[in-house]
Design a protein around this nucleic acid. Sequence first.
DNA 1: AAGCCAGTTGAACAAACGTGCAGAGGGAGA
DNA 2: TCTCCCTCTGCACGTTTGTTCAACTGGCTT
Lengths: 334, 334
Amino acid sequence: MVVTDASGPTRGDDLPSGKTRDALRAAHLYYLQDLTMDAIAKELHTSRSSVSRLLSHARATGLVEISIHSPLDLPSRLEQEILERHEVAAHVVPVPDHASDVDRLERVALSAARILSRFIDSNQTIGVAWGSTMSAMSRHLAPKATHNSEIVQLNGAGNLRTTGILYASELLRRFGDAFGARVQQFPVPAFFDDPATKQAFWRERSTRRLLDLQASMDVAIFGIGSPFAEVPSHVYQGGYLERADYDALSRDGVVGDVATVFYREDGSTDGIALNERATGPDFATLRRAPRRICVVSGRAKLPGLEGALAAGLITDLIVDEGTARRLVEDVPAS
Amino acid sequence: MVVTDASGPTRGDDLPSGKTRDALRAAHLYYLQDLTMDAIAKELHTSRSSVSRLLSHARATGLVEISIHSPLDLPSRLEQEILERHEVAAHVVPVPDHASDVDRLERVALSAARILSRFIDSNQTIGVAWGSTMSAMSRHLAPKATHNSEIVQLNGAGNLRTTGILYASELLRRFGDAFGARVQQFPVPAFFDDPATKQAFWRERSTRRLLDLQASMDVAIFGIGSPFAEVPSHVYQGGYLERADYDALSRDGVVGDVATVFYREDGSTDGIALNERATGPDFATLRRAPRRICVVSGRAKLPGLEGALAAGLITDLIVDEGTARRLVEDVPAS
DNA sequence: AAGCCAGTTGAACAAACGTGCAGAGGGAGA
DNA sequence: TCTCCCTCTGCACGTTTGTTCAACTGGCTT
């Protein structure tokens, strides 16, 4: 639920009550004055454990923000190089080379969630895709109070087996909760069976409303799908695609997808039949968003990432260290 | 010393060596990925204790910044009221009411030091006064790398007993170190014996250079002196003033000083003889600095604070809770 | 070459911290 | 009014973290 907190007009002394208020004060004392929790407990007339919990609350709830500044001169050579080669602001997440893909994903998602709050603000329309990366991310979002913002689902999530609504709506809801934003779901399947159905649907006014929102996004957040990786992305496991679809993608030289829209190594999408049935925004629409944040982890997604970069889909990239390294090594000159 | 760190052009893998680099990585892992220090130790191939130290280093050195955001709607009613009444951005430091004045000062100074780094940036001229408040503050500054900034001493520090140079230079040096800035000392006594000497000195070219710097300050940082408080400020203990001077101040209705320039309750300075011999910048000069940060703790300084506010010396105020409360209560309507 | 100093290191200990748990409080509904 | 359910509290325990200490390193002097 959105942070509301009963801190009414309790004027008078200095005990305006309200958990958030206490948390704020505890945070001041702990992070700005270096008191121990014990000392804070005494000042707040409560137990040390409660203070510990208050501080957890303060962190989890975004009252406290911890950020890390490279001393400008040495900003991860990697980030620097990625910026130069691809004109993309990169955030490289350190992960040990031997980490499993699951670990890697989890850690990138955690960092990404923390970094994200910098980009979110009031009065924004925020497009959110879905997939395992976005899902992991949604579980770690640091709340940040905003007004009048809107979360828009970028692509449908229904498939042959489930409506996908539960999964996707849960994910979206987490984003909405974290930022106190309204959530606009997109209740369509990930892929239509028949392009004509999509066309028809797209003409519906309720659909149009959503498409218009997408077209006016301020921020888009998405992962990258990699159809032919050893560990396929969510889209490719969940029964969204059939054998024939795969074969078609393979023939077309597809290296990845963003919000269920497929593309080739060079970023092109023309003539990829499946896109006619996909529900994600075409790249021209996506690129209208001034800030487009891509979260990637695992070397398997490298080709997909390179394609997305070629397509100019990304303005901000959050990526694990190993993949970042390969990105700059693979392509000596773009 | 200024952070230099031997992290040269060590290209290659991902082990560019350098303590700062490790600290940065540790900080990422600890604060952005919530690993335990033990886990980080393994990733960095070192002991847990070293990681603990690295993290301390990262915090002390400003690589990690921890900030606290009130959820905009409830920004300490006090800060709100001070803003409305005095047009000053206040930062209220929570301190228990029963805290001693020494505690109070220490805690305000600590918070102030942390808050300060937000205001400091590259290519700035930063005026710094001295006194017990500034001294306490200087001991807690969080380093922040800047280029081409300059610390300028606002007022002389010599007195009858010592040259004051040691004390003041130590204080200034800490500021300089923390921000990697050059330090411009002002080697004059706090008060001249004879106004004429001051006049003469002020015509010296070396003095002019410094006064010009003061006149082009971007930020000024100062405390408030309170001559008649039970616990007198540094200026009033150290042998800077004599009996006769006190009497004169008392007759003139002085309530405080900023950088050894005295003023009355209404902020006026005209006709206060001592100011003719003082070495601090006159208020017109001071007010040319776009940002003027005042750090105050202890109710004894309340009259002084009110005078400084009346004189329009302050744009940003860092003050302990008790004093802030009295400030808004004392004067129901400004 | 020996000696010295300043800076690091990990082990061991002590302090500070997070969390499961059982009990207390306090509405909303029966 | 009683009961159920939810939330919050402080305690007790195990874990995590800060710090002291002695040993070690590498550079510089004598």
